[in-house]
């Protein structure tokens, strides 16, 4: 009995040591990253390539959720949760809702596809954007520098309510103005009030 057990231990440990020696843990972690990145990028491509505009909107949601998963992968779970709640929840629902309200009889070809020249233009713009983003991300310190916030939520809260309190308040006022504007657009305002 003990011989069998020690034999199993020997095999399991041997396999594990071998896997570690060829760098399997890093490979798996990198694989997860590339899987999520691929889902994000492919669904972002789907947004522009899908024929049905409802499918495009759903692909956009998938892309948002992919970005949220990437945040969580990079130990920024608070940012990930914000991404899920704001983009995956609210923004995506509003976009799908808006599309539903502009319903047309044939949804299958509602996302207009352009000619070859337009596609070429889009490809060039996308390539230039990728290049710029690559250079910026290579040159910026964000690439290597980890956050010094300590506990993520506390760190963000401290920074937001002390050092960056003015931008925070400005954003709040901006959102308030947008909200009032939306209400006026929806409800209308009588000329007598002005």
């Amino acid at each position: 009995m003990t011989d069998v057990l020690s034999f199993i231990h020997f095999i399991v440990n041997g396999v594990m040591d071998f896997l570690v020696s060829i760098g399997a843990p890093d490979l798996i972690m990198a694989g997860i990253f590339y899987l999520m990145a691929a889902v994000t990028v492919l669904s972002a491509l789907g947004v522009v390539l899908m024929r049905n505009v409802v499918h495009s909107a759903l692909m956009l949601t998938a892309s948002f959720i992919g970005v949220g998963c990437l945040y969580i992968y990079m130990n920024a779970s608070f940012m990930g949760a914000v991404q899920f709640l704001v983009y995956g929840g609210a923004v995506a629902v509003l976009i799908v809702m808006a599309i539903m309200l502009t319903r047309r009889p044939d949804m299958a070809h509602s996302n207009p596809s352009r000619g070859a020249l337009h596609q070429l233009g889009a490809a060039i713009v996308a390539a230039v954007f990728c290049l710029v983003m690559l250079i910026v991300s290579m040159a910026s310190p964000f690439r290597t520098e980890a956050s010094h916030l300590g506990d993520e939520v506390k760190g963000i809260a401290d920074l937001m309510l002390t050092e960056y309190v003015l931008p925070f308040e400005v954003a709040a006022v901006l959102l308030l103005i947008a909200m009032i504007g939306a209400i006026i657009l929806a409800k209308g305002v009588s000329e007598n009030d002005a």
Partner: peptide, 22 residues
């Protein structure tokens, strides 16, 4: 047991509305 447990929970369960839309 993540440090933003309750927030992540709300965020994840808010996704279910989109499937009703689908």
């Amino acid at each position: 047991d993540v440090n933003v447990g309750i927030f992540l929970l709300i965020a994840i369960s808010s996704q279910s509305v989109l499937t009703f839309l689908m």
